[in-house]
Protein backbone atom coordinates (compact mmCIF):
# COMPACT_ATOMS: atom_id res chain seq x y z
CA UNK A 1 0.00 0.00 0.00
CA UNK A 2 2.78 2.40 0.95
CA UNK A 3 4.60 1.56 -2.24
CA UNK A 4 1.51 2.33 -4.26
CA UNK A 5 1.21 5.66 -2.58
CA UNK A 6 4.82 6.37 -3.30
CA UNK A 7 4.31 5.52 -6.90
CA UNK A 8 1.34 7.80 -7.20
CA UNK A 9 3.04 10.71 -5.67
CA UNK A 10 6.52 10.27 -7.05
CA UNK A 11 5.89 12.92 -9.70
CA UNK A 12 4.89 15.51 -7.20
CA UNK A 13 7.63 14.54 -4.76
CA UNK A 14 10.18 15.09 -7.47
CA UNK A 15 8.61 18.39 -8.30
CA UNK A 16 8.69 19.37 -4.67
CA UNK A 17 12.35 18.43 -4.37
CA UNK A 18 13.12 20.51 -7.41
CA UNK A 19 11.40 23.50 -5.90
CA UNK A 20 13.09 23.10 -2.56
CA UNK A 21 16.40 23.19 -4.39
CA UNK A 22 15.32 26.31 -6.23
CA UNK A 23 14.38 28.02 -2.98
CA UNK A 24 17.70 27.10 -1.41
CA UNK A 25 19.61 28.59 -4.30
CA UNK A 26 17.28 31.54 -4.77
CA UNK A 27 19.78 34.35 -4.56
CA UNK A 28 22.20 32.66 -6.88
CA UNK A 29 19.46 31.86 -9.37
CA UNK A 30 18.21 35.40 -9.36
CA UNK A 31 21.62 36.93 -9.77
CA UNK A 32 22.30 34.71 -12.75
CA UNK A 33 18.84 35.33 -14.13
CA UNK A 34 18.78 31.61 -14.65
CA UNK A 35 15.86 30.06 -16.45
CA UNK A 36 15.41 27.63 -13.60
CA UNK A 37 12.41 29.53 -12.32
CA UNK A 38 10.53 28.19 -15.32
CA UNK A 39 9.10 25.14 -13.53
CA UNK A 40 6.14 27.40 -12.90
CA UNK A 41 4.81 25.80 -16.05
CA UNK A 42 3.67 22.86 -13.99
CA UNK A 43 2.63 24.95 -11.09
CA UNK A 44 4.32 25.42 -7.76
CA UNK A 45 3.68 22.53 -5.36
CA UNK A 46 0.97 23.56 -2.92
CA UNK A 47 3.21 22.90 0.06
CA UNK A 48 5.77 25.40 -1.19
CA UNK A 49 3.57 28.23 -2.40
CA UNK A 50 3.84 30.14 0.85
CA UNK A 51 7.60 30.12 0.41
CA UNK A 52 7.73 30.74 -3.31
CA UNK A 53 5.28 33.57 -3.90
CA UNK A 54 7.07 36.04 -1.62
CA UNK A 55 10.40 35.09 -3.17
CA UNK A 56 9.11 35.38 -6.71
CA UNK A 57 7.43 38.75 -6.26
CA UNK A 58 10.17 40.27 -4.20
CA UNK A 59 8.10 40.55 -1.04
CA UNK A 60 10.63 38.50 0.89
CA UNK A 61 13.29 41.01 -0.02
CA UNK A 62 11.20 44.03 0.88
CA UNK A 63 10.41 42.41 4.19
CA UNK A 64 14.08 42.01 4.91
CA UNK A 65 14.80 45.62 3.96
CA UNK A 66 12.01 47.04 6.10
CA UNK A 67 12.06 44.62 8.92
CA UNK A 68 9.82 46.34 11.41
CA UNK A 69 7.79 48.58 9.18
CA UNK A 70 4.69 46.43 8.99
CA UNK A 71 4.70 45.95 12.74
CA UNK A 72 4.99 49.71 13.27
CA UNK A 73 2.16 50.48 10.85
CA UNK A 74 0.09 47.77 12.44
CA UNK A 75 0.42 49.35 15.85
CA UNK A 76 -0.40 52.87 14.69
CA UNK A 77 -3.92 54.11 14.06
CA UNK A 78 -5.02 54.77 10.49
CA UNK A 79 -7.26 57.43 9.01
CA UNK A 80 -10.74 56.77 10.37
CA UNK A 81 -12.41 57.24 6.98
CA UNK A 82 -10.35 54.36 5.57
CA UNK A 83 -10.98 52.23 8.63
CA UNK A 84 -14.76 52.66 8.15
CA UNK A 85 -14.65 51.68 4.49
CA UNK A 86 -12.43 48.67 5.12
CA UNK A 87 -14.53 47.44 8.03
CA UNK A 88 -17.67 47.61 5.97
CA UNK A 89 -16.09 45.38 3.35
CA UNK A 90 -14.61 42.73 5.63
CA UNK A 91 -17.51 40.33 5.55
CA UNK A 92 -17.85 40.73 1.82
CA UNK A 93 -14.69 38.77 1.00
CA UNK A 94 -15.08 35.08 0.44
CA UNK A 95 -18.14 34.86 2.70
CA UNK A 96 -18.28 31.12 2.07
CA UNK A 97 -14.69 30.46 3.01
CA UNK A 98 -14.35 29.10 6.50
CA UNK A 99 -11.48 31.43 7.31
CA UNK A 100 -13.50 34.56 6.58
CA UNK A 101 -16.85 33.58 8.00
CA UNK A 102 -16.87 34.99 11.48
CA UNK A 103 -16.65 38.65 12.26
CA UNK A 104 -13.81 38.30 14.76
CA UNK A 105 -12.20 35.27 13.17
CA UNK A 106 -8.55 35.41 12.21
CA UNK A 107 -9.41 35.78 8.53
CA UNK A 108 -11.38 39.01 8.81
CA UNK A 109 -9.03 40.38 11.45
CA UNK A 110 -5.96 39.63 9.34
CA UNK A 111 -7.61 41.19 6.33
CA UNK A 112 -8.36 44.34 8.26
CA UNK A 113 -4.77 44.67 9.45
CA UNK A 114 -3.24 44.19 6.02
CA UNK A 115 -5.62 46.57 4.24
CA UNK A 116 -5.38 49.17 6.98
CA UNK A 117 -1.58 49.03 6.96
CA UNK A 118 -1.60 49.56 3.21
CA UNK A 119 -3.53 52.84 3.57
CA UNK A 120 -0.81 54.01 6.00
CA UNK A 121 2.00 52.76 3.80
CA UNK A 122 0.58 54.42 0.70
CA UNK A 123 -1.59 57.30 1.96
CA UNK A 124 -2.04 58.82 -1.50
CA UNK A 125 -3.62 55.63 -2.73
CA UNK A 126 -5.50 54.49 0.32
CA UNK A 127 -7.73 51.47 -0.03
CA UNK A 128 -9.29 50.20 -3.21
CA UNK A 129 -12.13 47.71 -2.87
CA UNK A 130 -10.54 45.37 -5.39
CA UNK A 131 -7.59 44.85 -3.04
CA UNK A 132 -9.84 43.02 -0.60
CA UNK A 133 -10.18 39.71 -2.44
CA UNK A 134 -6.52 39.82 -3.49
CA UNK A 135 -5.37 40.29 0.08
CA UNK A 136 -7.73 37.53 1.18
CA UNK A 137 -6.15 34.98 -1.18
CA UNK A 138 -2.68 36.06 -0.02
CA UNK A 139 -3.73 35.61 3.61
CA UNK A 140 -5.04 32.13 2.90
CA UNK A 141 -1.64 31.14 1.57
CA UNK A 142 0.94 33.02 3.64
CA UNK A 143 -0.45 35.22 6.39
CA UNK A 144 2.94 36.53 7.50
CA UNK A 145 4.00 37.85 4.10
CA UNK A 146 0.58 38.90 2.82
CA UNK A 147 1.13 42.60 3.41
CA UNK A 148 4.40 42.78 1.50
CA UNK A 149 3.01 40.68 -1.34
CA UNK A 150 0.09 43.11 -1.61
CA UNK A 151 2.58 45.97 -1.71
CA UNK A 152 4.55 44.29 -4.48
CA UNK A 153 1.44 43.53 -6.50
CA UNK A 154 0.07 47.05 -6.13
CA UNK A 155 3.38 48.81 -6.77
CA UNK A 156 5.47 46.62 -9.00
CA UNK A 157 3.18 44.20 -10.78
CA UNK A 158 0.08 46.32 -11.31
CA UNK A 159 0.91 49.99 -10.84
CA UNK A 160 -2.16 52.17 -11.35
CA UNK A 161 -4.60 49.31 -10.72
CA UNK A 162 -5.75 50.49 -7.30
CA UNK A 163 -4.82 54.16 -7.39
CA UNK A 164 -7.52 56.85 -7.35
CA UNK A 165 -7.71 57.14 -11.14
CA UNK A 166 -7.28 53.45 -11.97
CA UNK A 167 -5.17 54.46 -14.94
CA UNK A 168 -3.51 51.05 -15.06
CA UNK A 169 -6.87 49.32 -15.41
CA UNK A 170 -7.98 51.66 -18.18
CA UNK A 171 -4.72 51.03 -20.01
CA UNK A 172 -4.83 47.26 -19.67
CA UNK A 173 -8.48 47.11 -20.71
CA UNK A 174 -7.40 48.81 -23.92
CA UNK A 175 -4.50 46.35 -24.18
CA UNK A 176 -6.96 43.49 -23.83
CA UNK A 177 -8.84 44.73 -26.87
CA UNK A 178 -5.58 44.51 -28.77
CA UNK A 179 -4.73 41.07 -27.40
CA UNK A 180 -8.19 39.78 -28.35
CA UNK A 181 -7.88 41.20 -31.80
CA UNK A 182 -4.55 39.42 -32.27
CA UNK A 183 -5.33 36.11 -30.61
CA UNK A 184 -9.05 35.69 -31.05
CA UNK A 185 -10.30 37.78 -33.98
CA UNK A 186 -13.77 36.28 -34.33
CA UNK A 187 -14.60 36.83 -30.67
CA UNK A 188 -13.13 40.32 -30.90
CA UNK A 189 -15.36 41.09 -33.86
CA UNK A 190 -18.38 39.77 -32.02
CA UNK A 191 -17.65 42.01 -29.05
CA UNK A 192 -17.25 45.01 -31.31
CA UNK A 193 -20.44 44.33 -33.21
CA UNK A 194 -22.40 44.24 -30.00
CA UNK A 195 -20.77 47.18 -28.30
CA UNK A 196 -19.14 45.11 -25.57
CA UNK A 197 -15.95 46.66 -24.21
CA UNK A 198 -13.40 44.95 -21.95
CA UNK A 199 -14.15 47.45 -19.17
CA UNK A 200 -17.65 45.99 -19.03
CA UNK A 201 -16.59 42.42 -18.31
CA UNK A 202 -12.90 42.39 -17.45
CA UNK A 203 -12.60 45.15 -14.85
CA UNK A 204 -13.37 42.68 -12.10
CA UNK A 205 -11.24 39.93 -13.70
CA UNK A 206 -8.13 42.08 -13.87
CA UNK A 207 -8.45 44.10 -10.67
CA UNK A 208 -9.24 41.08 -8.49
CA UNK A 209 -6.77 38.84 -10.34
CA UNK A 210 -9.61 36.45 -11.22
CA UNK A 211 -10.28 35.60 -7.55
CA UNK A 212 -14.00 35.62 -8.18
CA UNK A 213 -13.97 34.02 -11.59
CA UNK A 214 -11.79 30.93 -11.49
CA UNK A 215 -12.14 27.71 -9.49
CA UNK A 216 -9.71 27.90 -6.60
CA UNK A 217 -7.00 25.46 -7.64
CA UNK A 218 -6.87 26.81 -11.14
CA UNK A 219 -6.75 30.29 -9.66
CA UNK A 220 -3.67 29.40 -7.63
CA UNK A 221 -1.90 28.09 -10.71
CA UNK A 222 -2.75 31.27 -12.57
CA UNK A 223 -1.21 33.21 -9.69
CA UNK A 224 1.92 31.01 -9.91
CA UNK A 225 2.29 32.17 -13.48
CA UNK A 226 1.41 35.74 -12.58
CA UNK A 227 4.14 35.93 -9.95
CA UNK A 228 6.61 34.59 -12.53
CA UNK A 229 5.64 36.61 -15.57
CA UNK A 230 3.55 39.53 -14.38
CA UNK A 231 0.63 41.39 -15.88
CA UNK A 232 0.76 39.76 -19.30
CA UNK A 233 -0.52 36.59 -17.64
CA UNK A 234 -3.69 38.44 -16.66
CA UNK A 235 -4.26 39.53 -20.24
CA UNK A 236 -3.63 36.02 -21.50
CA UNK A 237 -6.00 34.47 -19.01
CA UNK A 238 -8.64 37.02 -19.98
CA UNK A 239 -8.14 36.17 -23.64
CA UNK A 240 -8.44 32.44 -22.97
CA UNK A 241 -11.61 33.01 -20.94
CA UNK A 242 -13.17 35.05 -23.73
CA UNK A 243 -12.23 32.34 -26.15
CA UNK A 244 -13.78 29.63 -24.00
CA UNK A 245 -17.05 31.54 -24.00
CA UNK A 246 -17.11 33.04 -27.49
CA UNK A 247 -14.53 31.10 -29.46
CA UNK A 248 -16.93 28.93 -31.46
CA UNK A 249 -19.42 30.24 -33.97
CA UNK A 250 -22.35 28.46 -32.33
CA UNK A 251 -21.45 30.06 -28.99
CA UNK A 252 -21.54 33.48 -30.54
CA UNK A 253 -24.82 32.72 -32.24
CA UNK A 254 -26.36 32.04 -28.84
CA UNK A 255 -25.66 35.53 -27.63
CA UNK A 256 -26.72 38.09 -30.16
CA UNK A 257 -26.76 41.37 -28.34
CA UNK A 258 -24.77 43.34 -25.82
CA UNK A 259 -26.49 42.09 -22.69
CA UNK A 260 -26.63 38.49 -23.92
CA UNK A 261 -22.89 38.56 -24.56
CA UNK A 262 -22.16 40.09 -21.17
CA UNK A 263 -24.33 37.48 -19.44
CA UNK A 264 -22.42 34.77 -21.20
CA UNK A 265 -19.09 36.25 -20.17
CA UNK A 266 -20.27 36.54 -16.60
CA UNK A 267 -20.88 32.79 -16.48
CA UNK A 268 -17.28 32.09 -17.41
CA UNK A 269 -16.51 30.23 -14.19
CA UNK A 270 -18.60 27.30 -15.40
CA UNK A 271 -16.32 26.92 -18.38
CA UNK A 272 -13.22 26.23 -16.29
CA UNK A 273 -12.60 23.19 -14.09
CA UNK A 274 -10.79 23.03 -10.83
CA UNK A 275 -7.25 21.86 -11.61
CA UNK A 276 -7.82 22.66 -15.24
CA UNK A 277 -4.53 21.54 -16.85
CA UNK A 278 -5.82 22.25 -20.29
CA UNK A 279 -6.73 25.78 -19.31
CA UNK A 280 -3.28 26.48 -17.87
CA UNK A 281 -1.63 24.95 -20.94
CA UNK A 282 -3.74 27.20 -23.13
CA UNK A 283 -2.78 30.27 -21.14
CA UNK A 284 0.88 29.36 -21.51
CA UNK A 285 0.53 28.61 -25.20
CA UNK A 286 -1.21 31.92 -25.88
CA UNK A 287 1.41 33.61 -23.82
CA UNK A 288 4.23 32.28 -25.93
CA UNK A 289 2.31 33.19 -29.04
CA UNK A 290 1.90 36.72 -27.81
CA UNK A 291 5.61 37.12 -27.25
CA UNK A 292 6.11 36.01 -30.82
CA UNK A 293 3.80 38.66 -32.17
Amino acid sequence: NEKLKEGFSSGSVQREAKWIKIIDQWDRILSKKSSKVRPCQKGIPASLRAKCWPLLCGAANRMKQHENLYKTLDEQPALQSWVDVIERDLDRQFPFHEMFQSKDGHGQRGLFRVLKAYTQYQPDEGYCQAQGPVAAVLLMNMPAQAFWCLVQISEQYLPGYYSPLLEGVLFDAAMLTWVLKKTCPAAHKHLQNHGVEPLMFATDWLMCLFTRHLPFNTLLRVWDLFFCYGVRVLLQVAAVLVRRVLGRAEQRKQCQGQMETLEKLRGVKEEVHDEDDEFIAEVRFRFLNLIGL
Binding site: R92, Q129, P133, L199, T203, M207, C208, M259, E263, R266
Partner: peptide, 13 residues
Protein backbone atom coordinates in the same frame (compact mmCIF):
# COMPACT_ATOMS: atom_id res chain seq x y z
CA UNK B 1 -27.28 38.25 2.49
CA UNK B 2 -23.73 37.50 1.53
CA UNK B 3 -22.69 39.63 -1.34
CA UNK B 4 -19.36 40.71 -2.76
CA UNK B 5 -18.90 44.37 -3.40
CA UNK B 6 -19.24 45.26 -7.04
CA UNK B 7 -16.01 45.85 -8.93
CA UNK B 8 -16.80 47.44 -12.25
CA UNK B 9 -20.35 46.48 -13.13
CA UNK B 10 -22.96 43.76 -12.63
CA UNK B 11 -26.02 43.15 -14.73
CA UNK B 12 -29.57 42.02 -14.38
CA UNK B 13 -32.67 42.05 -16.51
Amino acid sequence: DESNHTIGVEFGS
